[in-house]
Design a protein around this nucleic acid. Sequence first.
DNA 1: CCCGGATGTTAGCGAGCGTTAACGTGATGA
DNA 2: TCATCACGTTAACGCTCGCTAACATCCGGG
Lengths: 206, 206
Amino acid sequence: MNPTKTAGGRREQILREAARLFAERGFHGVGVDEIGAAVGISGPGLYRHFAGKDAMLAELLVGISHRLLSAGRMRVAESDNPPAALDALVRGHIDFAIDDRPLITLHDRELDRLRDSDRKLVRQLQRQYVEVWVDVVCQVYPGAPEVEVRAAVHAVFGLINSTPHLGARSIPADRGDMAALLRRLALGALGTLDDGLPWTGPRTGG
Amino acid sequence: MNPTKTAGGRREQILREAARLFAERGFHGVGVDEIGAAVGISGPGLYRHFAGKDAMLAELLVGISHRLLSAGRMRVAESDNPPAALDALVRGHIDFAIDDRPLITLHDRELDRLRDSDRKLVRQLQRQYVEVWVDVVCQVYPGAPEVEVRAAVHAVFGLINSTPHLGARSIPADRGDMAALLRRLALGALGTLDDGLPWTGPRTGG
DNA sequence: CCCGGATGTTAGCGAGCGTTAACGTGATGA
DNA sequence: TCATCACGTTAACGCTCGCTAACATCCGGG
């Protein structure tokens, strides 16, 4: 009655293991036999679920880009004011970086291995996600030039995405501690965009 | 009289192009023929200068790790006090990230493609470089727990190293503007480690 | 003039890779 | 009972890639 449950579960399992392996050793550094072995089947068996190795990477990157963008938009829409929206964006991106480390790694590392059409789509989604951030940051710090805001947003992504590179000795034991630290660091960096005229409330018709 | 000039120049040229190509398409994504073509010779001709493709990557990563560490130590030694040392470290790392983008990219992306001995060496040099930063930051913000400082240092590396990912639309036109912005962001992030007792001068005996 | 080293070249080998072909097997349902 | 379908298997093909072998060229010094 529910054949998609097993099939979908298998697909998701393959994607999860493929993401981990790609992040560890790079797209070209992982063979289909290894991906198959990671889910208990052998190499060519994967072709019952995906058109090829490229298709797995494409589905991973398109999926994460979509989720980042839609989650970001939702968080902004649910916030009452720009500072709250910025804080929500920061928290959301941190959750993503901590909970989906392999995907975050792939997201800014293996983009160039995609077919042209897929790469264009992913880039477009990424650009829209950056735009969500830039809009919010420009509202919170209206005095900052947009080009600076754009570079600062990328820099904060780099800051938050540094999580996957950490060895065990550098990670605070508690997940919440790490998230709180990253939030402080990110907001501290963005705070330097303040030129003395940060957001002080809604413009009441001026 | 100076045969090393031509030979050394050739080696350096090969390393520079290899670094660029590895950073663009990944170590496994670049063939020796492409590297050769980039310097005007063809594939196997490279083996007159390097033992193999692996040797090029190893020399690149060991070299950058050495330079980062020694430059960092020198800057700290030349500074009068911890805050000045921290600022010098930040500025030095930013210069590196802007001027040697491909190497910075390789440095935290292709480490796992090295032979065991080379990888151990690079990791050791990286660890020592982190230690230089951690020592200085702990002096500037004595109230911060070391594990937080360590994670914060990695995060600041991620922030500064975000430069290579930027497209043309996101980069301030002037190199100095970009460096100044990154410095502000980095110091702003680290400033959140302040718990009310930042560095106020040398401890004068107790 | 010729030796020898530095620096290229092209041809080709051997291994590994992604992919396809052909086949097996167990559950499902008319 | 038997056709069908989902899901695997193994064998093998074709291609790419790193690397070696064998050979060419230039060039400085006795």
